[in-house]
Design a protein around this nucleic acid. Structure first.
Length: 204
DNA sequence: CCACGGATTGGCT
DNA sequence: GCCAATCCGTGGA
């Protein structure tokens, strides 16, 4: 059973909107990475918003550094960072130039290239159905499964290597919100958005 | 130069 | 549920 990808790629006008409009709008959209051999795609089911101006948990908060400078561009770029000595995580830059706003992709539902994702994640075949649910259910897991690393930071999402395809808007009643996960500052902002009851969420 | 902490994960109790 | 792994980015001396 092969999933048929939609055709329309999201353009700059989608990403350049305000952070808290873009973040929930990314739910249900199709995140895609291509290379010479493979097409990998997954439906976005969980995201978090980060804002450079007043959100102390954001890497862009209060300063611009070499690592985070891409976050200050106008919307439509990929920002990849490395953390805990082990994991890459990927973000979609949003808003206007200078704002430092981005959306962390926290979980996707695998659609295309699932065998490649399994190989990237585990280096072997699946042992159980449980492992399939575990494939891309977290920000570090997505980057591992998709083969996304530091060199992909700064990629223009309107070009052809990494991009996001449009898809029908997820209904409001299907979207849940909560506090963000794993941070120690600005912990109360309700800026995590997810598709309710999706099995691929990083947390219940 | 050196010290410290992190937008996580997976293994063990 | 708890906690170690692991190394880069950042900031201060």
């Amino acid at each position: 059973m092969k999933y048929k990808l939609p055709k329309k790629k999201l353009g700059k006008s989608f990403y350049k909107r305000e952070l808290l409009e873009v973040a929930p709008d990314l739910l249900g959209k199709i995140f895609v990475k291509t290379d010479k051999k493979n097409v990998l795609a997954g439906r976005i089911v969980e995201v978090e918003a980060y804002h450079g101006d007043f959100d102390e948990a954001a890497h862009s908060f209060g300063r611009k550094t070499k690592r985070t400078e891409i976050m200050f561009e106008a919307g439509g770029y990929l920002y990849v960072y490395f953390t805990y000595g082990a994991h890459y995580c990927c973000n979609v830059v949003t808003g206007k130039k200078g704002q430092g706003t981005a959306v962390l992709i926290r979980a996707v539902e695998p659609l295309t290239g699932i065998d490649i994702m399994i190989k990237n994640r585990f280096g072997r075949k699946l042992k159980s159905e449980k492992e399939k649910i575990n494939l891309t259910s977290g920000p570090g897991k997505i980057c591992k499964a998709f083969g996304i690393e530091k060199q992909h930071s700064g990629i223009d999402l309107t070009k052809n290597e990494i991009f996001i395809l449009d898809s029908q808007k997820v209904q409001n009643k299907e979207v849940g919100t909560s506090k963000r996960i794993g941070i120690s500052k600005s912990v109360d902002l309700p800026w995590r958005f997810f598709i309710k009851n999706n099995p691929y969420l990083s947390r219940k």
